[in-house]
Design a protein around this nucleic acid. Structure first.
Lengths: 136, 136
DNA sequence: TATTCATATAATAATCCGTTCATATGAAAA
DNA sequence: TTTTCATATGAACGGATTATTATATGAATA
């Protein structure tokens, strides 16, 4: 990680500049202030990871397909594979990831395990995403 | 791609089964129906890719950090790097990805290029995600 | 209890993606 | 017009993630 304190030579809008330039010195200082403020209020690495987790899970087509399939009602693994056109093993893998992220849940029904969308928030987000993608 | 028609031997809840099992035959048929319906209403590969695009972009910590930094106000590349603790090149790469996804936008100001969050929807989603991550 | 069958897991191969280093670009200032 | 400096880009590396094949697990039924 090449971080830590840097030399001053690289800093834009440094005080030794006059008032020339498209932005004024005051703006420059404000930007420097904003940058420092942003750095200070930056959530922890762990929290950011947590924020990203759900997005990462939804950002994969194979998982999105599974979700879309489940939005029509709960399905067993075999039927999910049938609906999305994938093989059983991979669907099972992706279901695990979806379940770990609490995006889907499962229940046993006889010999099968039925998966369903975990809650309405998920459904809402997927529908929004779909609507957004359609008007392109 | 091991898809296309399969042999009948693999199909769960097939008609030759009696009414035994945890689920009834009627439920079995309904599941088969749902699976077929899901497959038919499955959006195109292209649309799904499009749905996933924004999620994929937001699913990466380095980009999420940049967004969080920009939520305090527009910043130039150098200040963004300072705020997130990364190097110029990588920040620039990630900014390009964010910009291609229309999640951030940019404008020139003198020598610098100032980046900012593209619209309130983005801000809203990030704030929600942050709130969600905090109550864990 | 033994068998069956849906689902899960392990291991591997293949691909994607973020990071970094080095360098190019091109607008602004001189 | 030349120089400077912020930003962008290209190439290469490495880590991470998905897809696949083969096999294990374990609940349900007989």
């Amino acid at each position: 990680m090449p971080e830590e304190e840097k030399t001053e030579t690289n800093i834009p809008f440094a005080e030794e500049n006059g008032a020339e330039g498209a932005d004024s010195v005051e703006e420059a200082c404000e930007h420097e202030l904003l940058a420092g403020r942003a750095r200070k209020s930056m959530p922890s690495e762990e929290q950011i990871e947590c924020m990203c987790a759900a997005f990462k899970v939804l950002g994969e087509p194979s998982r999105m397909k599974i979700l879309l399939a489940l939005m029509g009602g709960e399905l067993c693994v075999y039927h999910i594979a049938e609906a999305v056109g994938g093989n059983q093993s991979n669907v099972s893998h992706q279901l695990r990831i979806l379940k770990d992220a609490r995006i889907v849940r499962s229940r046993r029904a006889g010999k099968n395990i039925l998966y369903s969308v975990a809650d309405e928030h998920v459904t809402a987000i997927v529908l929004m995403s779909r609507a957004h993608a359609e008007c392109r």
